[in-house]
Design a protein around this nucleic acid. Structure first.
Length: 650
RNA sequence: GCCACCGUAGCUCAGUGGUAGAGCUCUCGAUUCGUAAUCGAGUGGUCGUCGGUUCAAAUCCGACCGGUGGCUCCA
């Protein structure tokens, strides 16, 4: 039998015949010179591969150009190799780790005697340009294990990786000019295709992400197909910096962190405190209307409570150390600040006998808890040690799980989607390998979560094995305006704590039963949520949230009394308004109001004072003002607040 | 916690071995102004802390505290 020809199917469904042994690159050339020039890689039977690899007979093949998102990953991975090529030339003794493509860029890990300096990065970037100019082809070879080990005899990290490869795995190495790497690929045809890149920063990173292993030096970079894309990306990074809640938080006097008190502890200044207060009111109104009951519980407890809950051995690392026994107390009575509220709420549940008719019982508390987070993880308001959870624990029967989750998802949508207009994603995290409780229980729980998600028509990502050891959960993640992902709300089922605390309710059969418990937070924590909102709105909060809603500006002192009257009328309607009485020019005061992101500046000159109107300047709208009778302004703004509108009503 | 970098007035920053600076903020005075910074004057810092080197340290070295970017961990 001769196999002089192979047939492949193109994305448009057409078939092409090629000589046996033809590569994807050959196919591109056969189709046309334009495509041959633009071709970067190929998708063969769904898998992205090098152009230089021979095509199997009967394959469906798509030639990838820079228009294809998958090609970006190939570019970035190849950029990582270019980086390593350059580093090896400048630092011949650098041991190489991993160098993958990541979102928006790539990195490569090196083991070097001393960390890279900013000057090193510059030199490396220069050397990379030479590697690109040389346009070394990326050459793939498949080798056996022994050959691979010989190739990387001087690279212990690669040797370790080889040892971890499954016995049936194909081992491939890629060469570009002087550099050889153990790598699955795929790559661009040559280093010359890496044109628009920039090294961003260097940082330490544990080998294989394991903090017990040595720390490697990681270099991060970004790479794009066009100059515009690269510049656009760098511009976005700059924009992101301007939205940083730590900068805006300072500029708008929202909060501070004081070294005297300690890292990760938020001081809510009056303006920030108003955001906090409004969010509390908002969420409390919502949950009180949905059958929740508020509780308040102590911040400090005998240590034994967390021993019983099982937290202490596991969670001690994240708890502040115990406080000693008080005067006259037994030596062994030690106290802990609480890092979470669940055991407290459980004690409220357990304080009396419960009937199946009472369930679900929903105990909510917006509570401050303290967690001794590792110092390196702290980050503005987004990661703190003193945190305010909008916490609740729901005690319910197994048959109520689906409906309760359904209602929780409804609250999430009401808050995140309807009120703030946020895009968020749902992750369903299922049973991990190390788990407590029998499979039947997990089946019920996971099915309940899944059914609820389906019933809501919500799209969600399955995080197989990502659940907590005590139960599956739904995590709500959202992207901020600049694309970073955060975890906010979380809905966790728990079979463990009811067990440990021997919780019971009396069923219709007059026998004791064990309830299931749901831990849930909608904002997650007020700190993180406010930090996120600051960045999302870049400090320009919707009216209902704005710490200062209206600033009244008399044009001159002659209108001071009229301005005070306007402010008083607004205040009487429940709006947060004040008069800027400073003896500064109008320009100065307008600028200050804009800089402070006050939604409305109500200018009162003689014309307005005489007519009983105000000239309203809308935040961000520039000179374009709207003159309204005072009563109408009050009406519009109170309505804007009532509806929690995201757009101006003026 | 680990790696690197950073820490000067309330804020943003200049000052690299020889007597601590600017702008803004704040206070006072003048100005009373029609939509993004009016003019003048003044207050304000043992240069993160402690120790070391030096005739001399904001500047060089060390430790600690705090911050930034990553890693690990996580709401």
């Amino acid at each position: 039998m001769t196999t002089a020809e192979i047939r492949v199917t193109l994305p448009d469904g057409s078939e092409r015949r090629l000589p046996a042994g033809s590569t994807a690159g050959d196919l591109a050339r056969a189709i046309g010179p334009g495509l041959a020039k633009a071709a970067l890689a190929a998708r063969v039977n769904g898998e992205v591969r090098d152009l230089a690899r021979p095509l199997p007979d009967g394959a469906s093949v798509a030639i990838l150009t820079d228009k294809d998102p998958a090609a970006l990953d190939v570019l970035r991975h190849s950029s990582a190799h270019v980086l390593a090529t350059a580093v090896r030339q400048l630092f011949p003794h650098a041991k190489i780790g991993f160098g993958p493509a990541i979102e928006d860029g790539f990195y490569y890990d090196f083991e070097v005697p001393r960390p890279f300096t900013p000057e090193d990065l510059q030199a490396i970037e220069g050397k990379m340009a030479e590697v690109v100019a040389a346009d070394h082809p990326f050459v793939r070879e498949e080798v056996d294990r022994a050959a691979a080990k010989r190739r990387f005899v001087d690279d212990p990290l690669k040797l370790e990786r080889i040892d971890d490869l499954a016995s049936d795995e194909v081992i491939s190495v890629y060469t570009d000019g002087p550099f050889v790497d153990l790598c699955r690929g795929p790559h661009l045809p040559g280093t010359g295709r890496v044109k628009h890149f920039k090294l961003l920063h260097a940082a330490g990173a544990y080998w294989r992400g394991d903090e017990r292993r040595q720390m490697l030096q990681r270099i991060y970079g970004t790479a794009w197909f066009t100059k515009d894309d690269l510049e656009g990306y760098l511009r976005r990074l700059e924009e992101a910096k301007k939205r940083d809640h730590r900068l805006i938080g300072k500029a708008l006097d929202l909060y501070s962190i004081q070294e005297d008190v300690g890292p990760g502890m938020i001081f809510w200044h009056p303006r920030g405190a108003m955001l906090n207060f409004q969010l509390r009111r908002f969420i409390e109104d919502i949950i009180l209307a949905r059958g929740y009951e508020l509780v308040y519980t102590p911040h400090v407890t005998r240590e034994q409570l967390f021993r019983r809950s099982g937290h202490l051995p596991l969670y001690a690392e994240n708890q502040f150390p115990a406080m000693g026994a008080g005067e006259g107390e037994a030596e062994d009575v030690r106290y802990r600040v609480k890092p979470m509220n669940c055991p407290m709420h459980i004690l409220v549940y357990a304080s009396q006998q419960r009937s199946y008719r009472d369930l679900p019982i929903r105990l909510a508390e917006i509570a401050n808890v303290y967690r001794n987070e590792r110092s390196g993880t702290l980050h503005g308001m987004l990661r703190v040690r003193g945190l305010t959870m909008d916490d609740a624990h729901i005690f319910l029967r197994e048959d109520q799980i689906e409906q309760e989750i359904f209602e929780l998802l409804d609250i999430v949508e009401l808050v995140m989607g309807k009120t703030f207009g946020l895009d968020y994603r749902l992750d369903l995290a299922t049973r991990p390998a190390k788990k407590l409780g029998d499979d039947a229980m997990w089946d019920v729980a996971e099915r309940g979560l899944e059914q609820a998600l389906k019933r809501r028509g919500a799209s969600y990502r399955l995080d197989q094995g990502g659940g907590a050891f005590y139960g599956p959960k739904i995590d709500i993640k959202f992207n901020d305006a600049i694309g970073r992902e955060w975890q906010g709300a979380t809905i966790q089922l728990d079979f463990q704590l009811p067990e440990r605390f021997q919780l019971e309710y009396t069923g219709a059969d007059n026998a004791p039963h064990r309830p299931v418990m749901i831990h849930r937070a909608i904002f997650g924590t007020i700190e993180r949520f406010v930090g996120f909102l600051i960045e999302h709105f870049a400090g320009a909060f919707p009216l209902w949230l704005s710490p200062e809603q209206v600033r009244v500006l008399p044009i001159a002192d002659a209108q001071l009394e009229a301005a005070r009257g306007v402010a008083a009328a607004l205040q009487a309607a429940g709006l947060r308004a004040r008069v800027d009485e400073r003896s500064e020019t109008l320009n100065y005061r307008v600028r200050d109001g804009e800089v402070m992101k006050v939604p409305y500046l109500a200018v009162v000159g003689q014309r307005e004072a005489d007519a009983g109107t105000v000239a309203v300047r809308v935040r961000g709208a520039g000179k374009k003002q709207v003159v309204l009778p005072l009563a109408e302004l009050v009406e519009r703004l109170t309505e804007e607040v009532r509806t929690r509108s995201l757009v101006s009503s003026v």
